[in-house]
Amino acid sequence: MSHREELASFLRSRRARISPEDAGLPRGHRRRLSGLRREEVALLAGVSSTWYTYLEQGRRRGVNPSRQVLDSLARVLRLDEDETRHLHRLADQAAADTRIDADVPPAELARQLVRLSEPIPYPVYAADIHCDLIAWNAATTSYYAKFAQLPHDQQNMMLWLISSREAKARLPDWEGDVQDVVARWRRVSTSIADRDRLHAQVAEYKKVSPQFAAWWDSHDVREHHTRKRRFNHPELGTVTLRLIVVDSAEMAPGSFVVYHAPVIT
């Protein structure tokens, strides 16, 4: 999808979640949709019904929402903070129609951070915007998998999570963990320059996992908040660690480092 198409799809998916009762409107007897109609969203947000229809259709000319209008739409659609930031990001990218340069230098800063973390007894790994693994420390292999033994084109965290039996064995809360990762990737995917590869990845992963397909199509988005993750460690038993995601403007666009820290009780 283009950024405008992504914005349109996101708005439609959020509109479908809000019932007329939630918005303080009567349902009526002839309503076929469970969610709000476009004209109802426009009315509640204080914008033209035609203009909002054009926005949901991904039209380019004359459809550049201001921050105030976006905040009004976020209020009507009951977006949380992550979803609201995602809405603004999509709108900004759609207006500028810019792409991050695909020919970025290697993520040396991310690799260096992982190398410095080698003595740490907890997982530290780096990945790029496509979820390809850039580097990992020794502890990552004991908590997750021996990624070096996988073919190079399969050294991808998303692919491993949705396709590997080992992932389900290592992560007792596999469904919630993967759903969270999909929502995070959904958010950063709007910045991917190589749209052809993104489309190919999503199509492949949907074939691999119907659950991934449902989660991706839900358009749920999430920022890189810290969260807890439980592991079935082969030697230590059940271990709960806190995930801390670090990125930087100096890294290759979209790349990040994931640290795991013991939970302080």
Rank of each mutant, 00 (worst) to 15 (best):
Y52I: 00
L79W: 01
D194G: 08
R38H: 03
S66C: 06
E108L: 14
V246C: 15
E235L: 06
E108F: 12
A45E: 02
P253H: 11
M157Y: 11
H152S: 14
L161T: 07
W51L: 05
R165S: 14
R4I: 05
M158L: 15
H260I: 03
L11D: 04
A138I: 00
M158N: 01
W174K: 02
A261H: 15
S142K: 04
A200H: 14
S218R: 08
R227N: 10
E166I: 01
D180C: 12
R89Y: 12
A74G: 02
Q179I: 12
S189W: 00
A45R: 00
V239D: 03
R30E: 11
M1P: 05
A45V: 01
D82V: 07
H224N: 11
R184P: 04
A45L: 03
R115C: 09
S189E: 03
G58C: 00
V124Y: 05
S72H: 09
D71F: 05
L55H: 01
R170T: 00
S72P: 08
L150I: 06
D128R: 03
A45T: 00
V181P: 09
A107R: 13
P105L: 14
P262F: 07
L79R: 02
P123S: 05
S72I: 05
Y122I: 02
D194W: 11
R12S: 12
P253Q: 10
P172A: 04
Q155H: 05
R170W: 01
L90F: 04
Q112C: 09
R85E: 14
W136M: 02
S72Q: 09
P234A: 00
W215T: 06
V239M: 03
Q57E: 11
N232Q: 13
R184W: 09
I18M: 08
E223D: 14
R227K: 10
D220R: 10
H260N: 06
S142P: 06
V114E: 02
T265I: 13
R227T: 04
A200G: 15
